[in-house]
Amino acid sequence: MNNMGAIILISVGVLFNIFGCIGLIRLPDMYNRLQAATKCVTLGCCSILLGVLVHFGIGSAGFRALMAIPILFFTATVAAHALARGAYHFGTKMDERSVKDDYREAVK
């Protein structure tokens, strides 16, 4: 029973990772790739770590997995924010389908 829950959680996590990597390859410009990949891959890896927690139960390994989840969330979101900001200052163009850009006046 315990093992079954762990397997299901890990499979869901790998499925989310697949969506994220398809987005990384298919989407047209850098900002959209960053969005899809960051969201899907972060939640997928959190789901895998939850699966580890369910598999080992309360104990040394389980708590390590539980502590890894908030670290993963904070580092992934802050890294995505820094990358987006750096890429804009670097001068990366947005896709031609973009409809709005409020940030340009703020940077100039």
């Binding site: 990772n17 990949a37 891959v41 890896c45 770590l49």
Partner: peptide, 10 residues
């Protein structure tokens, strides 16, 4: 590179 680092944790 960023996404690679997260996938390794999985």
């Amino acid at each position: 590179i960023d996404i690679f680092g997260i996938l390794v944790v999985g």
